[in-house]
Design a protein around this nucleic acid. Sequence first.
DNA 1: CAACTTATTGATAATGATTATCAATATCAA
DNA 2: TTGATATTGATAATCATTATCAATAAGTTG
Lengths: 143, 143
Amino acid sequence: MAFEKEHKILDGYLRDKGLKQSAQRRDILNAFLKTEGHMTVEDLHKIVKRKNPSIGIATIYRALKMFCECGLCRELRLGDGMIRYEHKYGHAHHDHFTCLKCNKLIEATDPEIERLQEKLARKMGFKLQGHLLILYGLCRECK
Amino acid sequence: MAFEKEHKILDGYLRDKGLKQSAQRRDILNAFLKTEGHMTVEDLHKIVKRKNPSIGIATIYRALKMFCECGLCRELRLGDGMIRYEHKYGHAHHDHFTCLKCNKLIEATDPEIERLQEKLARKMGFKLQGHLLILYGLCRECK
DNA sequence: CAACTTATTGATAATGATTATCAATATCAA
DNA sequence: TTGATATTGATAATCATTATCAATAAGTTG
């Protein structure tokens, strides 16, 4: 299954916090890492169930929250009432474009936009720590 | 109370859709318009209650949804689990900056960023119809 | 290895914002 | 004035997420 680096990050986090390991959490991490895209908790629950049918959904919630805390995962609130999760470790920062017709979600970045955000924040006297940018519209296929 | 223009917009919308007027909705619109900032449904409910103590919260939900449909109001999902509402009519487009310490919410815009978003979307083959940009960090007072 | 402390798990109850339902009432056109 | 129908307010339903809790597993210490 590999993913040694990611497991090492999780293990380091557990050690730092004095927490314990568990087979369930390892299974969830593997399923999370091998699944590309922007998962919902329910999506991941279904996937992990194939390997461990008795896993509870509360455990998925708990694990994803922990993965976010140790930098393996990023939370994504697109305004559809569900939190989505994507890989963070080893992935450059990016924003998102969602198609209003087919609901496709695509990653997008522009370093120039990032730079201007910094500049705007500075101009207003703020210390920028992060941002959320979602572009809405019609994708190539739907427009 | 004035706000003639905004009431005219609402009335036109009602006429177009074959809907009826109501004193409650007019009260809600006045309360909405006279309140600056980024209101939550509950905020507005409290305010309207001062004039009409028997107004139900469901009516506030319904009215705000309608105000959004006719362009008087904009919905704002900041990821804190509640939808916030702000004036849209007569207000230039703007994005938001939220302070992670004091939760202050401030409006911000940069026409250059807007332009680059258009460009980025075009480059990816998308037709841009809107965007959501929230900057997170520490404000002048908290940093 | 055994005993003990404590984190984890899975089931399920609780939460909380929003939506749907419904009978009573208000609006508006004929 | 009447009839059709939109609106209202109360409240039940929904649904994603969180909290609770007893049972179990992990890891530490003697």
